[in-house]
Amino acid sequence: MERVPVLKIGDMLLVSIQVDMEDQTALNLQEDLADKIVATGCRGVIIDISALDIVDSFVGRMLATIAGISKVLDAETVVVGMRPAVAITLVELGLSLPGIRTALNVELGMALLARARFEAEGGGDAGEDDETVAAAS
């Protein structure tokens, strides 16, 4: 069974999905990522889907689930690298990935997470700003 590697970069975890996701692969990834978050105490997760040219509702739901699990474990999730055609198709399918932050690439994703933490530590509520950054970048 294929496993998607979960890499620790600085104080963040990077998940780069390179393969077609099957049920079992998705479940493994959820478990691996949750374990890694608990083990490292990282508070940011970046999921890179730039290698995927087809994202169907299954993968969309999986991303939402991962983001939900991470949130419960006190980690923010940013999905980065989505292709335009994929974005259009997702919206047409009626999937807008609610509750998932997005960024155009890994670099911007990391910046987004850093700012979010800064604001969280500063006491400010930056929920709406995050959305803005994602859209603007």
Partner: peptide, 8 residues
């Protein structure tokens, strides 16, 4: 774009 739609 249609290729992606079709495949999806």
């Amino acid at each position: 774009q249609d290729q992606t739609r079709f495949a999806t």
